[in-house]
Protein backbone atom coordinates (compact mmCIF):
# COMPACT_ATOMS: atom_id res chain seq x y z
CA UNK A 1 0.00 0.00 0.00
CA UNK A 2 2.87 2.32 0.84
CA UNK A 3 4.48 1.78 -2.55
CA UNK A 4 1.19 2.55 -4.31
CA UNK A 5 0.99 5.87 -2.48
CA UNK A 6 4.60 6.78 -3.29
CA UNK A 7 4.05 6.00 -6.97
CA UNK A 8 0.76 7.95 -7.04
CA UNK A 9 2.33 11.04 -5.50
CA UNK A 10 5.28 10.76 -7.88
CA UNK A 11 2.91 10.56 -10.86
CA UNK A 12 0.99 13.62 -9.65
CA UNK A 13 4.19 15.60 -9.06
CA UNK A 14 5.25 14.60 -12.56
CA UNK A 15 1.96 16.07 -13.79
CA UNK A 16 2.71 19.30 -11.95
CA UNK A 17 6.26 19.45 -13.30
CA UNK A 18 5.39 18.97 -16.93
CA UNK A 19 2.45 21.40 -16.62
CA UNK A 20 -0.19 18.76 -17.27
CA UNK A 21 -2.18 19.79 -14.23
CA UNK A 22 -2.05 23.46 -15.15
CA UNK A 23 -3.02 22.81 -18.76
CA UNK A 24 -5.97 20.62 -17.81
CA UNK A 25 -7.22 23.14 -15.23
CA UNK A 26 -7.03 25.99 -17.73
CA UNK A 27 -8.73 23.95 -20.45
CA UNK A 28 -11.62 22.79 -18.28
CA UNK A 29 -11.88 26.07 -16.37
CA UNK A 30 -12.07 28.42 -19.33
CA UNK A 31 -14.52 26.29 -21.31
CA UNK A 32 -16.73 25.83 -18.26
CA UNK A 33 -16.66 29.55 -17.52
CA UNK A 34 -17.59 30.37 -21.11
CA UNK A 35 -20.50 27.93 -21.09
CA UNK A 36 -21.67 29.11 -17.68
CA UNK A 37 -21.76 32.74 -18.81
CA UNK A 38 -23.39 32.01 -22.16
CA UNK A 39 -25.69 29.52 -20.51
CA UNK A 40 -26.96 32.17 -18.08
CA UNK A 41 -28.65 34.14 -20.83
CA UNK A 42 -31.55 31.85 -21.72
CA UNK A 43 -32.00 30.71 -18.16
CA UNK A 44 -34.96 32.90 -17.45
CA UNK A 45 -37.05 31.52 -20.27
CA UNK A 46 -36.94 27.91 -19.23
CA UNK A 47 -37.05 28.52 -15.53
CA UNK A 48 -33.91 26.71 -14.59
CA UNK A 49 -30.97 27.87 -12.54
CA UNK A 50 -27.80 28.69 -14.36
CA UNK A 51 -25.82 25.84 -12.83
CA UNK A 52 -28.10 23.04 -13.91
CA UNK A 53 -28.68 24.61 -17.32
CA UNK A 54 -24.99 24.66 -17.88
CA UNK A 55 -24.80 20.98 -16.92
CA UNK A 56 -26.41 20.19 -20.27
CA UNK A 57 -23.78 22.01 -22.30
CA UNK A 58 -20.93 21.03 -19.98
CA UNK A 59 -21.92 17.38 -20.26
CA UNK A 60 -21.66 17.56 -24.04
CA UNK A 61 -18.29 19.19 -23.68
CA UNK A 62 -16.91 16.87 -20.99
CA UNK A 63 -17.85 13.88 -23.06
CA UNK A 64 -15.18 14.99 -25.54
CA UNK A 65 -12.63 16.64 -23.28
CA UNK A 66 -12.27 14.26 -20.35
CA UNK A 67 -11.69 11.12 -22.41
CA UNK A 68 -9.15 13.09 -24.42
CA UNK A 69 -7.25 14.33 -21.37
CA UNK A 70 -7.47 10.90 -19.73
CA UNK A 71 -6.11 9.09 -22.81
CA UNK A 72 -3.31 11.62 -23.25
CA UNK A 73 -2.27 10.97 -19.65
CA UNK A 74 -2.53 7.21 -19.81
CA UNK A 75 -1.51 5.92 -23.24
CA UNK A 76 2.16 6.45 -22.44
CA UNK A 77 2.01 5.30 -18.81
CA UNK A 78 3.36 1.78 -19.25
CA UNK A 79 4.74 1.52 -22.78
CA UNK A 80 6.65 4.77 -22.24
CA UNK A 81 8.41 3.36 -19.20
CA UNK A 82 9.17 0.12 -21.02
CA UNK A 83 10.68 2.09 -23.89
CA UNK A 84 12.72 4.45 -21.74
CA UNK A 85 13.91 1.55 -19.61
CA UNK A 86 12.70 3.06 -16.34
CA UNK A 87 10.28 0.18 -15.76
CA UNK A 88 13.12 -2.33 -15.64
CA UNK A 89 14.71 -0.51 -12.72
CA UNK A 90 11.42 0.20 -10.96
CA UNK A 91 10.49 -3.48 -10.88
CA UNK A 92 13.70 -4.40 -9.09
CA UNK A 93 12.46 -2.29 -6.17
CA UNK A 94 10.08 -3.61 -3.52
CA UNK A 95 7.07 -2.82 -5.71
CA UNK A 96 4.52 -5.32 -7.02
CA UNK A 97 3.35 -4.91 -10.58
CA UNK A 98 -0.25 -4.28 -9.57
CA UNK A 99 1.05 -1.51 -7.33
CA UNK A 100 2.69 0.12 -10.34
CA UNK A 101 -0.64 0.13 -12.19
CA UNK A 102 -2.69 1.28 -9.19
CA UNK A 103 -0.11 3.90 -8.22
CA UNK A 104 -0.23 5.40 -11.69
CA UNK A 105 -4.02 5.20 -11.68
CA UNK A 106 -4.37 7.09 -8.41
CA UNK A 107 -1.77 9.61 -9.51
CA UNK A 108 -3.52 10.29 -12.79
CA UNK A 109 -6.86 10.47 -10.99
CA UNK A 110 -5.39 13.14 -8.73
CA UNK A 111 -4.49 15.13 -11.83
CA UNK A 112 -8.05 14.77 -13.17
CA UNK A 113 -9.47 15.58 -9.74
CA UNK A 114 -7.45 18.79 -9.60
CA UNK A 115 -8.55 19.70 -13.11
CA UNK A 116 -12.24 19.03 -12.47
CA UNK A 117 -12.40 20.56 -8.99
CA UNK A 118 -10.34 23.64 -9.77
CA UNK A 119 -11.47 24.03 -13.39
CA UNK A 120 -15.19 23.22 -13.22
CA UNK A 121 -15.58 24.07 -9.54
CA UNK A 122 -13.71 27.34 -9.87
CA UNK A 123 -15.73 28.38 -12.90
CA UNK A 124 -18.98 27.68 -11.03
CA UNK A 125 -17.74 29.56 -7.98
CA UNK A 126 -16.85 32.60 -10.10
CA UNK A 127 -20.28 32.52 -11.75
CA UNK A 128 -22.07 32.28 -8.43
CA UNK A 129 -20.01 35.10 -6.95
CA UNK A 130 -20.16 37.52 -9.83
CA UNK A 131 -23.60 36.93 -11.41
CA UNK A 132 -27.02 36.89 -9.77
CA UNK A 133 -27.88 33.36 -10.84
CA UNK A 134 -27.47 31.95 -7.35
CA UNK A 135 -26.57 28.43 -6.46
CA UNK A 136 -29.76 26.71 -7.51
CA UNK A 137 -28.99 23.46 -9.26
CA UNK A 138 -25.61 22.97 -7.57
CA UNK A 139 -26.48 19.32 -6.90
CA UNK A 140 -26.73 18.64 -10.62
CA UNK A 141 -23.47 20.50 -11.15
CA UNK A 142 -21.63 18.52 -8.48
CA UNK A 143 -23.05 15.29 -9.92
CA UNK A 144 -21.71 16.36 -13.29
CA UNK A 145 -18.28 16.96 -11.77
CA UNK A 146 -18.26 13.58 -10.05
CA UNK A 147 -19.45 11.66 -13.08
CA UNK A 148 -16.91 13.51 -15.25
CA UNK A 149 -14.20 12.16 -12.99
CA UNK A 150 -15.65 8.69 -13.37
CA UNK A 151 -15.71 9.11 -17.14
CA UNK A 152 -12.08 10.18 -16.96
CA UNK A 153 -11.28 7.10 -14.88
CA UNK A 154 -12.85 4.89 -17.58
CA UNK A 155 -10.55 6.29 -20.25
CA UNK A 156 -7.49 6.24 -18.02
CA UNK A 157 -8.13 2.52 -17.47
CA UNK A 158 -8.69 1.95 -21.20
CA UNK A 159 -5.52 3.90 -21.95
CA UNK A 160 -3.49 1.64 -19.63
CA UNK A 161 -4.84 -1.43 -21.36
CA UNK A 162 -3.65 -0.04 -24.69
CA UNK A 163 -0.35 0.93 -23.08
CA UNK A 164 0.36 -2.55 -21.75
CA UNK A 165 -0.72 -4.37 -24.92
CA UNK A 166 1.37 -2.56 -27.53
CA UNK A 167 5.14 -2.60 -27.97
CA UNK A 168 5.75 0.98 -29.05
CA UNK A 169 4.68 4.41 -27.87
CA UNK A 170 3.61 5.49 -31.34
CA UNK A 171 1.31 2.48 -31.65
CA UNK A 172 -0.19 3.33 -28.27
CA UNK A 173 -0.80 6.92 -29.35
CA UNK A 174 -2.57 5.73 -32.51
CA UNK A 175 -4.65 3.21 -30.60
CA UNK A 176 -5.64 5.86 -28.06
CA UNK A 177 -6.90 8.14 -30.84
CA UNK A 178 -8.90 5.27 -32.34
CA UNK A 179 -10.34 4.49 -28.92
CA UNK A 180 -11.39 8.10 -28.46
CA UNK A 181 -12.92 8.30 -31.94
CA UNK A 182 -14.86 5.08 -31.52
CA UNK A 183 -16.30 5.70 -28.08
CA UNK A 184 -16.80 9.44 -28.29
CA UNK A 185 -17.65 10.09 -31.94
CA UNK A 186 -18.15 7.08 -34.17
CA UNK A 187 -20.38 4.98 -31.95
CA UNK A 188 -22.88 7.82 -31.56
CA UNK A 189 -22.78 8.52 -35.28
CA UNK A 190 -23.45 4.85 -35.98
CA UNK A 191 -26.41 4.86 -33.60
CA UNK A 192 -27.75 7.98 -35.25
CA UNK A 193 -27.33 6.43 -38.67
CA UNK A 194 -29.11 3.32 -37.46
CA UNK A 195 -32.07 5.40 -36.34
CA UNK A 196 -32.19 7.28 -39.62
CA UNK A 197 -32.07 4.09 -41.63
CA UNK A 198 -34.74 2.50 -39.50
CA UNK A 199 -37.73 3.65 -41.54
CA UNK A 200 -40.03 0.93 -40.23
CA UNK A 201 -39.13 1.80 -36.67
CA UNK A 202 -38.14 -1.75 -35.79
CA UNK A 203 -35.75 -0.49 -33.18
CA UNK A 204 -37.80 0.11 -30.12
CA UNK A 205 -37.14 2.49 -27.29
CA UNK A 206 -35.75 -0.29 -25.14
CA UNK A 207 -33.27 -1.61 -27.66
CA UNK A 208 -32.04 1.87 -28.51
CA UNK A 209 -31.50 2.79 -24.88
CA UNK A 210 -29.67 -0.46 -24.29
CA UNK A 211 -27.46 0.19 -27.31
CA UNK A 212 -26.62 3.57 -25.83
CA UNK A 213 -25.47 1.89 -22.64
CA UNK A 214 -22.79 0.00 -24.60
CA UNK A 215 -20.68 3.14 -24.80
CA UNK A 216 -19.40 4.62 -21.54
CA UNK A 217 -19.64 8.15 -22.89
CA UNK A 218 -23.37 7.69 -23.60
CA UNK A 219 -23.85 6.17 -20.18
CA UNK A 220 -22.28 9.32 -18.80
CA UNK A 221 -24.61 11.50 -20.88
CA UNK A 222 -27.71 9.62 -19.77
CA UNK A 223 -26.59 9.76 -16.16
CA UNK A 224 -26.25 13.53 -16.18
CA UNK A 225 -29.35 14.29 -18.21
CA UNK A 226 -31.66 12.06 -16.21
CA UNK A 227 -30.38 12.42 -12.67
CA UNK A 228 -32.17 15.74 -12.13
CA UNK A 229 -35.51 16.82 -13.62
CA UNK A 230 -34.38 20.39 -14.05
CA UNK A 231 -31.48 19.24 -16.24
CA UNK A 232 -33.76 17.02 -18.30
CA UNK A 233 -36.08 19.94 -18.96
CA UNK A 234 -33.25 22.20 -19.94
CA UNK A 235 -31.84 19.56 -22.22
CA UNK A 236 -35.11 19.04 -24.03
CA UNK A 237 -33.69 16.08 -25.91
CA UNK A 238 -33.29 14.16 -22.73
CA UNK A 239 -36.69 12.58 -23.26
CA UNK A 240 -35.23 9.54 -24.97
CA UNK A 241 -33.04 8.67 -22.10
CA UNK A 242 -35.32 9.93 -19.38
CA UNK A 243 -38.07 7.59 -20.47
CA UNK A 244 -35.63 4.73 -20.54
CA UNK A 245 -35.89 4.69 -16.77
CA UNK A 246 -32.38 3.44 -16.01
CA UNK A 247 -31.62 3.73 -12.35
CA UNK A 248 -28.72 5.74 -11.10
CA UNK A 249 -27.10 2.65 -9.59
CA UNK A 250 -27.20 0.79 -12.93
CA UNK A 251 -25.52 3.72 -14.71
CA UNK A 252 -22.91 4.14 -12.00
CA UNK A 253 -22.32 0.40 -11.92
CA UNK A 254 -21.78 0.35 -15.68
CA UNK A 255 -19.26 3.16 -15.53
CA UNK A 256 -17.51 1.54 -12.58
CA UNK A 257 -17.15 -1.74 -14.45
CA UNK A 258 -15.68 0.18 -17.39
CA UNK A 259 -12.97 1.23 -14.93
CA UNK A 260 -12.50 -2.05 -13.10
CA UNK A 261 -12.43 -4.43 -16.07
CA UNK A 262 -9.72 -2.67 -18.13
CA UNK A 263 -7.66 -2.06 -14.98
CA UNK A 264 -7.86 -5.72 -14.02
CA UNK A 265 -6.98 -6.77 -17.56
CA UNK A 266 -4.02 -4.37 -17.55
CA UNK A 267 -2.70 -5.85 -14.32
CA UNK A 268 -3.16 -9.40 -15.62
CA UNK A 269 -1.29 -8.68 -18.87
CA UNK A 270 1.43 -6.76 -17.05
CA UNK A 271 1.83 -9.56 -14.52
CA UNK A 272 2.62 -12.06 -17.27
CA UNK A 273 4.82 -9.72 -19.22
CA UNK A 274 8.52 -10.56 -19.32
CA UNK A 275 11.01 -7.75 -19.41
Amino acid sequence: MRATGILAVNEFLDGLRNRWVAAAIILLGTTALALLLVGSAPAGTIRAGALDVSVVSLTSLSVYLLPLIALLLSFDALVGEFERGTMLLLLTYPVARWQVVMGKFFGHMMILLAAVVVGYGGAALLTVLFTDNGITGWQAYVTMMGSSLLLGAVFIALGYLVSVLVRERSTAAGAAIVLWLVFVVLYDLALLGLLLADHEQKIGQGLFSTLMLVSPSDTYRILNLTAFDSVGQAAGIAGVAARSGFGMSLLLGLLASWVILPLTATMAVFHRREL
Binding site: D14, R17, N18, R84, G85, T86, L89, T92
Partner: peptide
Protein backbone atom coordinates in the same frame (compact mmCIF):
# COMPACT_ATOMS: atom_id res chain seq x y z
CA UNK B 1 20.78 -2.93 -9.63
CA UNK B 2 22.41 -0.64 -12.14
CA UNK B 3 20.92 -1.45 -15.56
CA UNK B 4 22.83 -1.07 -18.79
CA UNK B 5 22.25 2.49 -20.09
CA UNK B 6 20.20 3.52 -17.08
CA UNK B 7 17.34 5.97 -17.67
CA UNK B 8 15.46 8.31 -15.35
CA UNK B 9 12.54 10.70 -15.58
CA UNK B 10 14.40 13.56 -17.20
CA UNK B 11 12.18 16.30 -15.78
CA UNK B 12 13.20 15.41 -12.24
Amino acid sequence: YLPESVAFHSAM
